[in-house]
């Protein structure tokens, strides 16, 4: 089970990212979210969406084994144990392990579903 995107339905509004940061950090800050919108303008005029596939490569590479799975099966980074080596960021094939200047530890999708709820266009779903 992981977060998937039908990018043909994405309008580029970034509400998913805002809802994500509010859930994860209780902050208004799309730069602290766990999915990426990739606008391709002016040509071909579409949005790409990158989401975590829960492939687990981040957990495999983590030298201190601080990326366990939650009750939904989603990998998450235990910020208290993380040594900020950023190997998980580098290994991620989708480029969806994120960092922010405020935080030493990276963060990634925990399958909370907030983005799915807020997206009015049905571009995001979990299955």
């Amino acid at each position: 089970m992981h977060l998937k995107a039908d990018s043909s339905k994405c309008t580029g509004c970034r509400l998913c990212q805002l809802a994500c940061s509010l859930y994860l950090f209780q902050e208004n800050n799309p730069k602290k979210s766990c999915l990426a919108i990739v606008p391709q303008f002016p040509d071909p005029g579409v949005f790409g969406v990158r989401t975590c596939t829960q492939c687990g490569e981040c957990a495999e590479v983590c030298p201190v084994e601080c990326i366990p799975q939650n009750e939904k099966g989603a990998y998450y980074i235990d910020a208290d144990e993380c040594i900020a080596c950023l190997e998980c960021v580098e290994v991620c094939p989708e480029n969806v392990v994120f960092t922010h200047p405020d935080d030493e530890a990276p963060f990634e999708c925990n399958l909370c579903g907030e983005c799915v709820h807020f997206c009015a266009y049905g571009a995001l779903y979990i299955e």
Binding site: K9, T11, G12, C13, L15, F41, P42, P44, G45, F47
Partner: peptide, 25 residues
């Protein structure tokens, strides 16, 4: 070709178009 929204808008009124006649976006 694409519905395009402003920030955090749930009702995208932006209609992004491609004219084949003029080959412009």
């Amino acid at each position: 070709i694409t519905d395009k929204a402003c920030f955090a808008c749930p009702c995208a009124c932006g209609k992004y178009s491609h004219s084949k006649k003029w080959d412009i976006y």
